[in-house]
Design a protein around this nucleic acid. Structure first.
Lengths: 225, 225
DNA sequence: GTCTATAACCGGATAGAC
DNA sequence: GTCTATCCGGTTATAGAC
């Protein structure tokens, strides 16, 4: 099911050309308006060739995904190296997600819907997306673990996965956001990251201990599916 | 943009036949495998006729959605009339959602993805879906308001919308659930409905009051978009 | 003016020759 | 690994029937 790995130099070149054409066209015209034929034409390849490298149009989206992830990781590296405060790290990281994705805002809607399809190879919860998913979750593990926040180990264990889900929620909100400069999304990010950090702090309260145990064991059960 | 309203008896018959054929075929073969041509054929109509009544295949899904809502509302009516305990009402209502939708489990995945598309007329957050959305939210308002739970008014205000979102989350989980009898989903429902009711009870704790205010005002801001 | 039907169009995907 | 030809299904155009 994986995308054909390029074996020869010639293949590498073609593959790269097709991918680049696709990424460009997605941004220029949006996902739906970009035809496989147009991608092939701009890449100087034939339709059949495109399908040789990418089994479906959706698989091009997966590369698109990886592309934004690399941009995002690069964008937050300095912050993660310097800052120790959890709220600041988290806010910066999530803000960077929407800032990085901003050029693709117009495309994001249709991409999201293909990705949300459980039958799609791109579904974030599925097997094909696993390597990339693990990378992103790992990134959130770093956001938390290299902060100076002291977090109970049971929470720490679930936190990266939870933050990954939270990021997807923010992205879905961002897709709908029509406010100038996407300001509403940024406000929601600031407010929610702050709330999250605060709630982590409250989780040690005796009254909440029971619910906390139950929530965590529920999440564990769900995650281990 | 609305579906053509049937004006004459002849039209009504055709429309109903097409819709019924579509619902049957969706269940038999799934959404993707059901072609508009097959729907027309089974309904004894022509392809052109189908498009006269339903502007797109997606619009047939909207009717499908309405269909399950009616089934669901009917299924829980006795419970809502008899039971006063909030946890029981909520658990029963959400359980009934997945039980009602069970015959469509195989179809649900692809339907969900078309529906999640912000550009789709069927998007639950969009204008076309509004009447149905309001009905469902209203149903959750009844679940809460006719229970014997005493709920602070600020929470009460946001609760129906929140429970509607929660229901969608459960449905997405259910779509992935491959366990026999969909037991895992039922377990998650039991656990989460109980947690929700418990958290509502905890919301009055002085330590939580600050966060509660912030969460509610955030939700209000988001909802009023 | 409401319905029905047929014939296209368009774009994702596939087959198979080279 | 590259191409052309073709399939298939959602959608549209449009001609006619009631």
């Amino acid at each position: 099911m994986a995308v054909a790995a390029p074996k020869t130099r010639r293949g590498e070149t073609s593959r790269a050309a097709i991918l680049e054409a696709a990424l460009d066209l997605f941004q220029e015209r949006g996902y739906d308006a970009t035809t496989m034929r147009a991608i092939a034409e701009r890449a100087g390849a034939s339709l059949g060739s495109s399908y040789h490298y990418f089994p479906s149009k959706e698989h091009l989206v997966l590369e698109f995904y990886r592309h934004t992830h690399v941009l995002h990781a690069a964008a937050i590296a300095p912050l993660l190296a310097r800052e120790k405060d959890l709220a600041t790290r988290l806010r910066g990281t999530i803000r960077a997600v929407v800032v990085t994705c901003e050029p693709f805002h117009a495309v994001a809607g249709s991409i999201f819907s293909t990705v949300a399809n459980p039958a799609s190879p791109l579904n974030p919860f599925g097997a094909a997306a696993r390597p990339l998913r693990d990378e992103v979750i790992q990134l959130y593990a770093e956001v938390v673990s290299k902060s100076d926040a002291r977090i109970p180990s049971d929470i720490m264990e679930m936190l990266p996965l939870t933050l990954w889900l939270y990021q997807m929620g923010i992205l879905y909100f961002w897709i709908f956001d029509r406010s100038p400069g996407r300001l509403r999304t940024l406000e929601v990010i600031d407010e929610t990251t702050d709330l999250i950090v605060r709630l982590i702090g409250l989780a040690n309260l005796p009254v909440l201990r029971g619910s906390r145990k139950r929530v965590l064991s529920l999440m564990n059960a769900i995650a281990s599916t």
